[in-house]
């Protein structure tokens, strides 16, 4: 297996305070990896640093063998990295169609774009019904589908998902998890950040536990579900 994403010694700081301290991890091509951790552990900071939205204090980010640490955000998209941001952050005044279209902004391959659009609508048939509606008027679950569709329209090699199940009803959580698995089955590497540890660990091939900006545990998803520390800290069982 080849390495899709290799992060070494990543340090991100807000002023004097380091939010992420010398974090290193690797995601193999084709797998689902997850970073779980409490609120404020630094999960979103890591994802934003990967996208280039946060300046990196030290360390390197290698995507598919290429060092992208110094690239601006919009260049990273062209190298195959795409993010579903926390809280979805859709363009509420644009229609679903326009949101999906803008997801493919960085691409110039017209025919393939059309194909990917059909594919996204197949993955989330609900969006076909809502196609001309303003994104801001959709329900939370539908918005999450648009956010995922928008990121997929960039035809990423590595898809970053930031808390995709936050604030969603249980059935919708399952639907989103299914979608993540299906996207992954088609060969897209997934890095999933979750507070909802159980649903993330269930589908993850590899999991990292992040505590106060440092990775404290690594393992495969199902193994970590049974790990006593994870059980007590994130799954709500008594140790």
């Amino acid at each position: 297996m080849s390495k899709a994403l290799e992060v070494s010694n990543l340090t991100v700081a807000y002023g004097e305070i380091a939010a992420v301290r010398a974090v290193s991890f690797t995601v193999e091509a084709g797998e689902i990896a997850t970073i779980i951790g409490a609120n404020g552990a630094g999960k979103t900071t890591i994802l934003n640093a990967l996208c280039g939205l946060r300046d990196v204090r030290a360390g390197s980010i290698v995507l598919g063998g290429e060092d992208i640490t110094a690239l601006p955000p919009h260049e990273r998209v062209r190298h195959g990295l795409s993010q579903v941001p926390e809280g979805r952050r859709l363009f509420g005044r644009m229609s679903v169609a326009e949101n999906l279209e803008i997801g493919a902004y960085a691409r110039s391959d017209h025919a393939a774009r059309k194909h990917d659009l059909d594919h996204v609508l197949e993955l989330f048939p609900r969006l076909r019904e809502r196609y001309r509606q303003l994104a801001g008027t959709l329900s939370g679950g539908e918005q999450q589908m648009v956010a995922m569709g928008r990121a997929l329209m960039a035809a990423p090699k590595v898809l970053l998902l930031d808390e995709p199940t936050m604030g969603l009803a249980p059935q919708i959580v399952d639907l989103v998890s299914d979608a993540v698995r299906r996207v992954n089955d088609e060969g897209v590497t997934v890095l999933l950040v979750e507070q909802n540890a159980y649903s993330a660990l269930e589908i993850a091939d590899r999991a990292f536990v992040l505590e106060s900006g440092e990775i404290t545990l690594t393992g495969n998803g199902p193994d970590l579900i049974t790990h006593p520390r994870v059980r007590s800290a994130y799954l709500g069982y008594d140790a």
């Binding site: 919009h74 941001p85 363009f91 803008i102």
Partner: peptide, 21 residues
């Protein structure tokens, strides 16, 4: 035009979608 609208609404997301700000 789309890129401008996206920038106006959310500059970070627009960048992360490949728009050069």
């Amino acid at each position: 035009g789309r890129a401008w609208l996206a920038m106006r609404e959310d500059e970070d997301v627009a960048q992360a979608l490949g728009i050069d700000p």
